[in-house]
Amino acid sequence: MNGVAERIQKLRETSGETENEVAEAVGLSIGEYGDLEGYDDEIIDAVSFGAASKVAGHFGQSLFQLLAPEAEASPEGYLGPEALANLVKGKIAEEGLSLEEAETKTGWYLEGFLANPGSYLAEQPIMFLIDLSGFLGIDWLSTMPRGRGSS
Rank of each mutant, 00 (worst) to 15 (best):
I8T: 08
G38A: 13
A46K: 12
F64D: 06
L99T: 07
A102P: 04
N86C: 12
G77I: 03
D139T: 01
S142C: 07
A46R: 13
W140P: 02
A71T: 10
G77Y: 02
Y39C: 14
A115S: 13
S74N: 13
E19W: 11
A83H: 06
D139C: 01
N86T: 11
F59K: 05
V4Q: 04
A93E: 11
P69G: 07
G112V: 01
E6C: 13
G147C: 15
G90Q: 03
A73S: 15
V47W: 03
E103P: 05
L67V: 04
T143M: 08
D131N: 03
A115I: 13
M1N: 14
N20C: 14
S74V: 13
E76T: 12
G34H: 11
L11D: 08
E123T: 11
L99F: 13
L84N: 03
V55D: 01
L67W: 04
S62C: 04
F113T: 01
E94S: 12
N86A: 10
L36K: 02
E24S: 12
V88W: 02
Y109D: 15
L11K: 11
A85Y: 01
T104V: 13
E19M: 13
F49T: 02
Y39H: 15
E24W: 09
A23L: 00
L132E: 04
L84P: 04
F128W: 08
A85R: 02
I92W: 01
S48A: 07
G80W: 01
G27M: 06
P145K: 05
S15A: 13
P145G: 09
T104R: 13
Y120N: 08
M1E: 15
R148F: 10
Y78T: 07
G90M: 03
Y33V: 10
F135I: 01
I44D: 05
M127L: 15
A73G: 14
I8W: 03
E95L: 13
L99Q: 08
T106P: 03
L136G: 06
E32Q: 15
M127I: 15
S150L: 12
S151E: 12
E100L: 06
K91E: 10
N2P: 15
G90I: 06
I43Y: 01
S150C: 12
T14L: 15
W140T: 00
S53N: 11
E72S: 14
D35A: 15
G137E: 06
L136F: 05
M144N: 03
K91Y: 05
F64W: 03
L11Y: 12
L97A: 10
S53I: 05
G96E: 02
G3V: 09
E76W: 12
I44V: 07
G96P: 00
